[in-house]
Write a protein that binds this DNA or RNA. Structure first.
Lengths: 228, 228
DNA sequence: CGCGGCTTTGATGTTCATCAAGTAAAGTGG
DNA sequence: CCACTTTACTTGATGAACATCAAAGCCGCG
């Protein structure tokens, strides 16, 4: 299915699979599969049975769920080397959250039982997983708390800084998500997200060309994120 | 230090330590220590170095952190068999969150290195930890999302139901926390939490005697939690 | 028995959601 | 490739939800 994916060199190996010997890695490699998703495609839906261990090789994904009233709550937007089938994978039968690609993405997929099998035999590997899972969860929780303590302006500023500093590492980037998705991420209304972006624009803090954002005055944006 | 704690019979054994043979359990038992905390006492502070694996034997604790402006954000209030030194323990050097007793509590303490050592040798044990950590984190995240999607009334109703159904399993209970702490938990102002409780009282949904709460009309409270 | 912290309630103002109406952009089918 | 349709974005006006402030009552503790 994929000659181009050579597990020995996979960057992910360092992250979780560093405790595996070459033989295990080879075995893993033989059992894995790569899947590509276009921007907007759903990788899996909440409620579906979990059978695969998935991680993001490239691209960008959002983790979210639907509220009873039908709108989305976005839990996290993350880039490669996070798990995709994350959070509930080692404790639940079924996904608690949906995952969708917000940019073209490649996901590497291994049967979950296979991972569990290795973990049972290899404590160091299991501890690697544990550490990684903890880290991912902690990030989600602390970001949620960070956002919760801020007002509208602070939240929008925070998200812009998140994209700049954590995702893209550039001052100019294309927003991978719609205004509505930002709203669903930070728990505000779409209209107010747009309004705040407009305000930042008027004050010369950012420049906006459709989806493209340029952070002009990083300093002031950081202040807005802090005091807001 | 504690003859009264016989690990072989510890209820916690079922939760995480079920994969250990008697010998390991004995070893664990020899290396553990029990600590008691009075209501209000701090078990550990964010920023402190993590050296112990701690779990709650009895009582009730809150997990929280301080915002830059000085007030508390309560992440979780949980009862026995949750980890206390939770979330960051397997991924960080230092606590990201503080833990304090909201009722008189007993915490069981083992050197973290000791736990790690066992986990490295015993994959099943490590996987048990992983499963437990995942579950705890997932609960925190989903509760946070549940709360986020509700308004003031829904949030207060939700918390009351949480105490009734998840913590105490009775219709009548003593609130273990102040009104302010509820506010810090659900992300609303103290005054409005109190106001909402008063409204519930006036409408005959609950009865209030100081810290003692009685849920009178469970059905309506559930409706308030759902629609709010 | 008096002081300080927690609780309660009312009045006021701010923040934010909602609604509406219009514009731009992006898909869709001929 | 263009007309058409739909979806995303934008802005203003309005009202609701909630925070804040203030003053008073209550309770526990020294």
């Amino acid at each position: 299915m994929d000659k181009d994916c050579i597990c020995e060199n996979c960057e992910f190996r360092e992250v979780v699979f560093s405790f595996l010997d070459d033989e295990s890695v080879q075995h893993l490699c033989d059992n894995k599969e790569q899947q590509s998703f276009r921007k907007g495609e759903i990788i899996h839906n909440e409620g579906e049975r979990i059978t695969y261990f998935k991680y993001l090789k490239s691209g960008l994904i959002k983790l979210y769920r639907k509220t009873p009233s039908g709108d989305e709550q976005i839990v996290s937007i993350t880039k490669p080397f996070e798990f995709v089938s994350n959070i509930s994978i080692f404790s639940e039968e079924r996904y608690k959250y949906s995952v969708a690609a917000v940019e073209d993405s490649v996901v590497c997929v291994v049967k979950l039982d296979f991972i569990k099998e290795i973990a049972l035999k290899n404590g160091a590997f299991a501890m690697g997983l544990l550490s990684k899972v903890s880290k991912v969860n902690e990030k989600i929780i602390s970001q949620t708390l960070d956002i919760r303590q801020k007002n509208l302006i602070g939240r929008v500023a925070y998200i812009l800084l998140y994209f700049t500093n954590e995702i893209y590492n550039t001052q100019v980037f294309d927003l991978p998500v719609s205004r509505k998705e930002i709203a669903d991420y930070i728990g505000m209304s779409t209209a107010n997200v747009i309004r705040t972006l407009s305000d930042f624009k008027k004050e010369g803090i950012i420049r906006v060309f459709g989806k493209t954002i340029e952070i002009v005055d990083m300093r002031r944006l950081e202040i807005m994120a802090k005091i807001g």
